[in-house]
Simulated scan of single mutants.
Amino acid sequence: MFVVSLNYKVPLTEIDRLQAAHVEWLKACYAEGVFIASGPKKPRTGGIIVAQCSREILDARLAADPFAKAGAADYDVTEFLARMTAAGLDAFKEA
């Protein structure tokens, strides 16, 4: 499993211009079953994505993000093993 931290490199006006395309990209990644959760940071300096897939698939999806294509964000990827989860999230546990 991966936690991806996006950090914006451009003014929020540019992020806002790309936002609709970014949301469509997110929806496609959810439809593929790659993303588990996502949302903006508070304060709005970037976002967080939780993904469950191979690193190769994740890297390909991140490269297709409109923010990445426009050079508007950097991505910090951290892999971890979900050994414990809250009730109802057992499907995300890793051996």
Rank of each mutant, 00 (worst) to 15 (best):
D90H: 08
A82C: 04
T85F: 03
H22C: 08
P43D: 11
I57G: 00
M1P: 06
S5I: 02
A72R: 02
I48G: 13
G71A: 00
Y8W: 07
T78Q: 12
D76F: 07
T85S: 04
P11A: 14
A70W: 01
P11Y: 11
F35D: 09
K69E: 02
A73I: 02
V77T: 11
G71T: 00
G71M: 03
G46N: 05
E14D: 03
G88F: 14
A95E: 00
A37G: 10
D74I: 02
N7Q: 11
Y75N: 00
E14R: 06
V23Y: 13
E14F: 05
D74P: 01
F92N: 05
R44P: 09
T45S: 15
D76E: 11
T78F: 13
Q52I: 06
K27I: 14
R44L: 09
N7E: 12
L6I: 03
M84D: 08
D76M: 05
A86I: 06
V77H: 10
H22K: 07
W25V: 04
K42F: 13
D65H: 00
G88V: 10
L81K: 08
L89D: 05
P43K: 15
K41Y: 10
A95D: 02
A63Y: 07
A91C: 12
S38C: 14
P11I: 10
L12C: 15
A63R: 04
E56V: 04
G71C: 02
G33S: 12
D76Q: 09
L89F: 10
A63N: 04
V3M: 07
A64G: 00
A82F: 01
L58W: 06
L18A: 02
K93M: 11
L62Q: 02
L62G: 00
K69I: 01
L81F: 03
A95I: 04
P40D: 14
E94Y: 03
E24L: 14
V50T: 05
R61I: 07
F2A: 01
H22M: 09
N7T: 10
L12T: 14
L26E: 13
D16M: 11
K42S: 15
V77K: 08
N7K: 10
A21S: 07
A20S: 15
A73N: 00
F92I: 04
Q19K: 14
A86Q: 11
S38F: 15
F2E: 01
T78Y: 13
L26H: 12
D74L: 02
K93S: 08
A63Q: 06
A64K: 00
G39E: 15
G33H: 13
A73T: 01
E14G: 01
A64E: 03
G46K: 09
S54D: 00
V50H: 05
Y30A: 08
Y30C: 06
P40A: 14
A64D: 01
I48P: 13
A31Q: 15
V10Q: 07
I49G: 03
R83H: 04
Y75Q: 01
K93L: 08
L58C: 03
E94W: 02
L89Q: 08
G88K: 10
M84G: 07
V34L: 11
D90R: 12
V50N: 03
A28L: 14
A73W: 06
E24A: 12
E24V: 11
